[in-house]
Structures are given as C-alpha cells and as structure tokens.
Write a protein that binds this DNA or RNA. Structure first.
Lengths: 203, 203, 203, 203
DNA sequence: AATGAATGAGTCTTCATTCAT
DNA sequence: CATGAATGAAGACTCATTCAT
C-alpha cells in the first residue's frame, strides 16, 4: 500500500473547503487571501493548489456540497399526503434552512460572486438551481396528480416559490428587521398568503 | 475671479458616475480599475479623487440616483382607482423596470457588492429599500382604505411583493430561461397568481 | 506646461534600461528580480511597469540601443580605399568591439535569452542582425566594385564574417584562454587567415 | 537477495536524461519543471533526485553523452589521406551534425544555459570543448606532418574552424534564411572559402 | 529505490492612492 | 481643480526540493 489513502486526501480537501467556507463567510471572497484559507485549514499555501485549480476553485468547490444539501432537502414520498398549504410551506422551508446555518454569511459570499462570476453562475445553475427547480416541479406535479388538482402553470408556480425564497433571504440579509423578527413564522405566513391569495382569507 | 461654476462640477461628477456605472456594469466592481473609470469619463486618474473619497465612493455615489429612480416610480394618486390585481402589477412592474435598463448588469454589480459591503448596504437600505418599502406600504394602506378592504398584514404583503421582485430578477440574472422568455408577461402572471392564490383560478 | 517633460521620461526610461543592462549582465536575466532592476535604477518596483510591459520588455528594450550601436559601427565612405585584408579586419573589429564593453557580460545574457525567447529573437534579427548583415553586404559590394574585384558569393562571405565574429566571441565567453590572451591581435590574424586562405601565405 | 542490477539503474538514469533532453529542447530549461521531466520519463518527481543532485544536474548530465558524441565524430586514421579542403570539410561537418539531430533545439538550450551558468560552462569546456579542440589540433598536426605542410598557427586555425561552426549554427538558429536554405552545401562552400581564401579561387 | 503530497520561499504584477507641477 | 507619474503594499501562484511511507 504505497499510495496515500484517497480518504485522507478527500478529508484534507474537505478540511480546506470547510476552512474556505468559514473564512469566506467571515471576510468575503475578495478580502480573503489564499493564505487565510491555508492557515485556517492548517496547511501550507501551496497545498491549496494541490487540491484546487486556483482561488476561484475554492468557490466552485463550495457549490457541490451545497447541491447535495439542496437535493437532500425533499422527500418526494412524504409530500403526497400534504395539503397545498403544507406542500408550499415545506418547499419554502427547505431552501430557507439551507443557508440559515451560518446566519446567511455564506449565502452572501456565494451570491456576491454569482452575480459577477460567469463560471460560478453556470456551475451553480447546473448543480443547484436546475436540480432544485426540477425536483420541485416534479414534486408539485406528483402532488397535483395525487390530489386531483389541475396544475396549469406548474413551472411558473415553482419559480414563484424559489424567487420568493431568494428574495426573502436577500431582504433579510439586507437587514430588514421585520423579516428578521418574524423569521420563524415566515414560511407559514408566506404559505398562507400564497395559497389563499392576497385578496383572500388565509388560515 | 472666475470660479468654476458648481454646475460644471456637478456635471463632471455626474459624468464620472455615469462612466462608473457603465464600466462597473460591464466588468464588475472589482475587475474595474479606477483608471478604467477615469478613461471612460475622459478625466485623469487623480481627478476621480477630487469628487469621490475612494473607489468605493463611486459605488456609493451610484446609490443616490438609483433612489431617485425608485421614488419616481410610483404616483400615489393614480393608484387609488386600481383593482387589487392592477395595484399589485404596478408594484411589480416598477422595480422590475428600474434595473432592466442595461440588462440587469448594474443590478449584478450592486447586489454583488451589497452582499459584502456593509457601508453600501446601509446606504442602500436607507436610500432605496426603506423608502421603497415605505412608499409601497403607504400606497397599499391608502388603497385599502379607499377600497374598503382590511389590510391585516400590509407590511408582510409588501415584503412579499418586493421579495418576489428581487427573487425574480435574481433568478433571471442567474440565467433562468423560462423567466427570460416570458419576461414581458411576467408581472401580469405574477399579479394573477398572487391575488388569486395558488389554489384558485386567476383571471 | 503641465505635462512632465518627455525628456525626463525618456531619461528615466534610459536610466531603467541602463540599470537593467547592468544588473542583467551581473546576475543573468532569470536570476535578476524586477526589484533588483528597480533598486539599481533608483525607482519603485511599480515604476518599471510604467515604462515596460513586463520583465521581458526590459530585455527587448535593450535591443534597440544595441542596434544603434551596430549601425554606427561602419562608415561606408571610408571603406572603399581599403585593401581586402583591411576591409575584412574592419568588419571583424566592429562587432567585436560592440560587446567588449562590459567584458561580454551583456552578450552572455542576450544570447542566453535569444536562444530561448522567440520574440526577442525576432526583434534582434530585425533590428540588429539583418541591418548589420545588410550593411556589410552593401559595403562589400561597393568595395568590390570600387576595386574591380568579382564577388561571386558576397552573401556567403558576409555570413562567414559574422559567423566568425559570433563564434569567436562565443568561444571566448566559454573561457578559451588562447583567444583571451591573443584578443587584440585576433582581428588581424583572422583577416590574414581569411584572405589568404588556410593553405596559403597571408598578406 | 535481489539487488536491483546497476544496469537497470543506469537505464533509468538514461531514460530520465533522454526525457530531460526532449523536454528541455521543447520548452527550454527554465520553462521546464522537474515534474515535466519526471512525467516525460514516466517516474515520480522525487525519483529524479535519486539520480541527480538537482534540476541543474540534469543539464550537467546532458553534457557527458554529448562529449561522447563529439569524440566519436573523428577517426584520426582516416584523415591523413585527405586533401586540406576535405580535411577542413570533415571538421566542419562533424560538429554541425552533432546538433542537427533535433533541429538544434537542444543546442539552443545548452548554449542558453552555458552563457549564464558557470558550472555548466566549466563542465562543457572540460568534457566537450577542450577534447574537441585537442583532437582537432592533434589531427591537424598529424595531417600536416603526413602531408609535409608547415602549420604555423595550428591552434588558431582550429579555433577558426570551431568558431565558424558555432557561429554558423548560431546564425541559423537565429533564423538566417540563407543559411537554412543552403545548409547542405554549406560545409563544402565554407571549406572552399577557408582553404582558398576570400581573395582567391576555390576548388 | 520509488513515490507524490506537502512545503513555503520567492516573484511578478496590479492598482488604489498620493502629490508635485 | 486637473493631471498622470510615482509609489509600494499586497497577493496569487509556481515549483524545486524534501521526506514519510
């Protein structure tokens, strides 16, 4: 057994990635030096480059775990029995939780770079956005069929949900106090509003 | 004694700011050098610093015109006669148009920096977000009163609208084809969905 | 007069170039850091880049003065009266002197990079080699005509001369003691040998 | 006890050296990384250091085979019967062929480093230049004696030959078209010129 | 002997900012 | 106020070399 066990390498890669997430979240991508990441990961500067093409690669590397997080969020089977309102709430809750972990600091960094970095954008779209939307559409279709409800604009509906999620996080990150204070109740309230309509009487 | 007329100075400031907006939109904030801006504005590098504290000041300077744009969007008087659906649509349309100008390129840059730059964030909140939300809440209140409709959660409703706007732009900027293709019809469709609710039958 | 006088800039450029020549000659191109050059020139690191594209540009910049040196070496008018032997000697002497200045240290560096740097090679060929060879051919032609001598292979003859020059310098630079010791007498001896032929009795 | 046969080690050393020659010739010495050589040789990076002191050692290692090539070029016995012109031509041809192999690419690299690397220079002088010159002088002496010809300046004559060889290669490497096109005929023409003299009538 | 991951010193280059003219 | 040359701190990245396995 001559080779360094791949597991160790994977572990180190992960350690670097974790460090990167931490430091990026704290200081932002541009304000973070490669050395910052290296020190946070407890490796030498050059070691970073054994695992990632360049500094930007660290960011790209952050996407993949995120996509796994996104995928794991939904359990299609469990959804069929839900009411529309609960169905919606679940789909709001999932993504909301995904970034809540570190108080949305990583969200900040990722979005910041997404806006400006085409490659990252493509990767994010491919690995996170498209799967998420796809799963949601599928789930929605299945749910609708199971409940004998017509779904005239499933695709649009799903976009509304995801847009709402992003928009809400964005506003919260921007420092909207009302959202911050009512964060816990938000998914429910939003679900009510969406299902019942602005004009109507929600639960 | 010929003192340079302030107007001229204001004009030059504006010229620099326009140049900055243009170049930032094209290359992003970090990828743009002060020299890029200077050249685009037709002034010397050093001149920039006669009008702005530093590079970041250019960004801050971009906020103010934007706030005027935001404010000008709504005409409270004209809103009262509208149906709820149309009221909503108008409030979606305005902000959507605000950034559409240069194909959302400036939106990209601003959001990118907002995520990461506390000072810019505060300024943006103060000059753009808060006024916008405030105006919308006020308009909504006035509309509700005029139409004898109760508004149990005006604040939340307004957040839903603005979140939706941000989220939708975000997703479009991310490259969502469905949104891009149906962009024109989007405000109407969203208004329908919001007013009628997911469960219901829209107009 | 607002502008920095171009003369000053040219002077500074020259100062940097001189410094580069000095430092390169001493340590070689690769072993020299840009900072070495900057310090030798008494400017800041960054200033170098106001005058040259990059480190390699310093090398390219060294070519041009050299070409002027090469050109100035010959005075066509004075050549016509010479004997063939003296004509040859003059043409050996010129280039030999060109690099003798700093004990061939710069020759070392230039040749070292010429061997490996295509761009430098092209520039050197265009600005130094071709003009030199051209001038020599022309001078040789004029001399031959003036002296009623046929020149069956002027081009080849000129190559032989220049090759000999380069080869001789090369071998001296390589540390050939015999050449070093007899350096002063060399042009004459070579001229004798070339004109009279290996077999024969020189003038 | 199975000890690795020295032959195998020598073979691997040779393989590494061949790889080095190939890669150096292609990319130049400085532009080549030790890893490049290792990969070209099919070994691990670290293995290189079991056979060579350091990267420079690879270059030094290239000299030795070259010296063998240089030595093998001449067969003293066969030379005695030649005419002076043919004797000269043979001595031009040999070294010319030595580097022709890979289109002078290796010549480029070696000369490039020779110019700048004292240690390499010493080694090259000792193992290649001095033997070559010595052999040639010896051969020339023997030939002169055998043909009853006085050799007043054997040493200088030999230098002229080797200088011419180096100079001609140098100019060809520099991109002299005339030399490139007439390469095959060159040794003959040079021999004619040298033996007959510039003034005279060649064979 | 072979491996190849880790190291970290070393360099080029960029660019925001200053300030003498 | 305008200019733009000078500055020099800062940082990404490379790569020869080492050494534990």
């Amino acid at each position: 057994m001559k080779k360094t066990l791949p597991e160790e390498l994977v572990a180190k890669r992960t350690r670097i990635l974790d460090a990167a997430a931490r430091v990026f979240a704290e200081k932002g991508f541009h304000a973070t030096t490669v050395r910052d990441v290296a020190q946070a990961a407890g490796v030498a500067d050059g070691t970073i480059y054994n695992y990632f093409e360049n500094k930007g690669g660290l960011l790209l590397g952050l996407i993949d775990p995120m996509s796994r997080g996104a995928r794991g969020q939904v359990d299609p089977a469990a959804l069929e029995g839900l009411s529309l309102r609960d169905f919606v709430q679940v789909h709001l809750l999932g993504p909301l939780k995904l970034f809540e972990a570190d108080d949305f600091e990583l969200f900040r960094v990722i979005v910041s770079e997404l806006m400006v970095n085409r490659e990252l954008r493509a990767l994010f779209r491919e690995h996170v956005l498209t799967p998420m939307t796809g799963l949601a559409e599928e789930a929605f279709g299945r749910w609708a069929e199971a409940n004998g409800v017509p779904t005239p604009r499933a695709a649009l509906t799903v976009r509304v949900l995801s847009s709402l999620v992003f928009g809400v996080i964005l506003q919260r990150v921007m420092g909207d106090d009302l959202l911050t204070e009512n964060w816990e109740a938000l998914p429910g309230a939003l679900a009510d509003l969406l299902v019942g309509g602005l004009g109507g009487e929600a639960t």
